[in-house]
Simulated assay, not measured.
Amino acid sequence: MEIIKDTTDFYIQGPTAVAIGKFDGIHKGHRKLFSDLIEEKNNGKKVVIFTFDPSPASFFAGATVPGLTTRDEKRKWFEENGVDVLIEFPMNAQTAATDPVEFIERYLVKQMGAKYVAAGQDVSFGDKGKGDYKLLDAMGQKLGFETHFITKVEIEGREVSSSLIRQEVADGHMENVSKLLGCPYTLHGIVSHGRALGRTIGIPTVNVIPSKEKLLPPNGVYYSIVRVGDKILRGMTNIGTKPTITDENLVVSETYLYDFSGDLYDKEISVSLLSFKRPEMKFSGVDELKTQMSLDVENGRLYHHSIETAKYNWNE
């Protein structure tokens, strides 16, 4: 997959099938759109994803606004699912003020060779977000590209959207998040060295410092599944700052792996949060912490034995 970033001066030899959007979370609605794009790839078009970097939310806030999917996670998913070219269009004062008609004529048609453009009906682009699906449709008829607009996917009576999923993550409703995304909410990272306290009390953990780009659920204990290479392991994950043992305000993901022994330092792992157990707590000392962690571990065994982990599609 070719990645075009940090420039507005690019050219793609068409014909192309282009999807426009922020793609935060790559949820079931996005996946419906991608399935249509792949059909166009089978018809001889290059698949192009047009997104923004930084995200519009981060640009207008003037700081990183955590999202459901980091830049690296998006890149990996796009590459694994057949995208030919990913455009991370630079979001700045100049590009944000681009006239919507100019955006279509210059970028979509002239520089991308678009013959098929897909987006959600809530798509917005150009100066003050004035470009919308109606303008795309009208310009498509004028300039010779086909448009395809995805209606919202509904699950249990609710429209699937990135904003809804972000709220569910913020509330710690991980089962709902899994349904809306089509897979569990997952943190990716490199296993780092911690204080080794868990090892000294008989409950060793693997530690990952989450990306600042990643929206985190409330601090607390979660039942989890961890992927290491081709292995899938059951786990219990604490997201938080470890207030019993440190005053540092660094949020860390610490996962105890059931029935596992080995060295995972400096290896890349994926931690999928399945269910919230309890909030993070500050205990009177290490002994009380160990007692609670031991109880959490036992409850986790019961949880994992009660669910069908095979129901989660790890290839999505």
Score class of each variant (00 low, 15 high):
I3G: 03
D9P: 00
I12W: 06
G14C: 15
A19V: 14
I20S: 05
G21Q: 05
H27W: 02
G29T: 13
G29W: 05
K32I: 15
F34I: 11
S35I: 09
E40Q: 14
K41Q: 09
N42R: 10
N42Y: 11
K45M: 06
V47Q: 00
I49Q: 06
F52C: 05
P54V: 08
S55F: 06
A57P: 06
S58Q: 09
T64P: 06
L68N: 07
T69L: 13
R75S: 14
R75Y: 11
W77C: 06
F78T: 09
V83N: 02
M91R: 01
V101F: 05
L108V: 08
K115L: 05
V117W: 02
G126E: 04
G126Q: 04
G129S: 07
K142I: 13
E146P: 00
F149Q: 07
F149P: 04
I155T: 04
I155L: 12
E156F: 08
E156K: 07
R158M: 10
S163M: 08
I165Q: 00
I165Y: 01
A170Q: 11
G172Q: 04
P184L: 12
H193P: 06
A196H: 11
L197I: 12
R199Q: 12
I209W: 09
S211W: 14
S211L: 14
L215Y: 12
L216F: 09
P218H: 03
N219G: 13
Y222Q: 03
Y223D: 01
L233R: 05
G235V: 06
N238C: 08
I239P: 02
T241E: 11
I245T: 15
T246K: 11
D247P: 04
S253G: 08
S253I: 06
S253T: 10
T255N: 07
D263R: 13
Y265C: 13
D266Q: 09
D266N: 11
E268T: 10
S275I: 02
F276Q: 00
K277T: 05
S284N: 09
M293F: 00
V297A: 03
E298W: 05
N299A: 08
N299C: 06
T309H: 14
A310Y: 15
W314Y: 15
W314E: 10
N315Q: 14
